[in-house]
């Protein structure tokens, strides 16, 4: 955890309200001066019946700050089965009850498709649209094709199994430690599963530049982890595929270019509405507008992603290397991407 974002109290409270019979909560914060510490201590005071701990201090095992932040808590956890979750996730009370049965002996990680909830501001709306359409599509498609699609927002696994590849500290040189955890589990011959319900991520307020920078980071991560998939990403969107389809339909069958393109984009939008509905996302009247804006910005976004190999994350400028590893932080910057 780092800092207090909007909705953090409610997000953390949702973990105190889990109905699973036996569990402990561990909150990992790197710096004792982080205001999140007071909030966590307050929640622990108000929920005395829940076995919870605040663990302060990062252990420098590599350039990935999230892994460093988790190390103490990871090693001090009481139980073998571990759920790693981000602080912007707000879980339903039955979350562990639904997750746990999927973690059988043949399964390495149970992850989830994310559902973007409660967006605010233009950036927040675009973020929710991105998460609930494009990102969900990739997760579902990649998973169906057998790729280890794991996201760090919700990763359920056994530490005894992760010890077989050296534990999460062995993933600390990667930016996408979640994706690599999935890869490592696959190399152990274990399955990657997605839970039957989506993982609710509270998006909150974002500016347009927050949205833009965040997805440049995610995109550059995909660029070094799966460059071929990133190269073909524009085709997994209505505009490029619509232009290609309209051109072909016009040349081959004489169909009016504009008619085909409009029908294609409209049909794509309806499909995305189904995905959003499945994820339980809010669908306000302005949804088509945000959807169109998100799709229209996807090509310049993609070009920006291709143009570099550095990312801003948790106050540090990090350089990505082939294979998804991180060079040591080049310089600290004032804001988190």
């Amino acid at each position: 955890m780092k800092g207090v974002d909007s909705g953090l109290r409610e997000n953390l409270q949702s973990f105190f309200s889990l109905d699973y019979p036996k569990f402990e909560l561990i909150f990992s914060v790197a710096d004792a001066r982080d205001p999140a510490c007071r909030l966590i201590e307050d929640l622990m005071d108000k929920n005395p019946g829940v076995d919870a701990r605040l663990i302060i201090g990062a252990v420098e095992v590599g350039p990935n700050p999230k892994v460093n932040n988790m190390m103490r808590g990871y090693h001090q956890a009481k139980y073998d089965v571990t759920l790693i979750s981000d602080s912007n996730v707000r879980v339903p009370a039955n979350y562990l009850t639904v997750l746990m049965p999927d973690l059988d002996d043949e399964t390495g990680v149970v992850s989830a498709v994310v559902s973007g909830q409660a967006p605010q501001g233009l950036g927040g709306r675009l973020e929710a649209t991105f998460v609930n359409t494009f990102y969900a599509r990739w997760m579902i498609l990649g998973s169906a094709l057998g790729f280890p699609m794991v996201i760090g927002k919700s990763m359920l696994f056994r530490r005894s199994v992760s010890a077989r590849f050296g534990g999460i500290q062995n993933l600390s040189k990667f930016l996408a430690e979640d994706f690599m955890a999935g890869q490592a589990m696959m190399h152990l011959g274990l399955k990657i599963k997605h839970m039957r319900i989506p993982c609710p991520q509270v998006i909150g307020k974002h500016s347009f530049s927050d949205f833009w920078n965040r997805h440049v980071r995610w995109g550059r991560m995909r660029k070094v982890q799966s460059p071929l998939a990133l190269f073909f990403e524009p085709v997994n969107g209505p505009i490029v595929s619509g232009l290609l389809g309209a051109f072909a339909a016009h040349k081959l069958f004489g169909v009016a270019f504009g008619t085909f393109f409009a029908a294609h984009v409209g049909f794509w939008f309806l499909n995305d509405l189904v995905v959003m509905s499945f994820l339980g996302a809010e669908i306000p009247y302005a949804t088509p507008l945000f959807w169109l804006l998100r799709e229209a910005t996807s090509i310049p976004h993609w070009m920006h992603i291709l143009s570099g190999n550095t990312v801003l994350w948790r106050g540090a400028k990090l350089k990505l290397q082939p294979g998804g590893t991180l060079a040591e932080p080049a310089s600290a910057v004032a804001r988190t991407a």
Binding site: R164, F165, N170, K173, F174, L228, Q321, P322, G323
Partner: peptide, 21 residues
């Protein structure tokens, strides 16, 4: 490397650790 058909410096430590265990 793009098709994950080779060991790379990035995944080599994972490979060696899995081999060790």
């Amino acid at each position: 490397a793009y098709m994950n058909r080779t060991l790379t410096p990035a995944v080599f430590p994972l490979y060696m650790e899995i081999l060790r265990t």
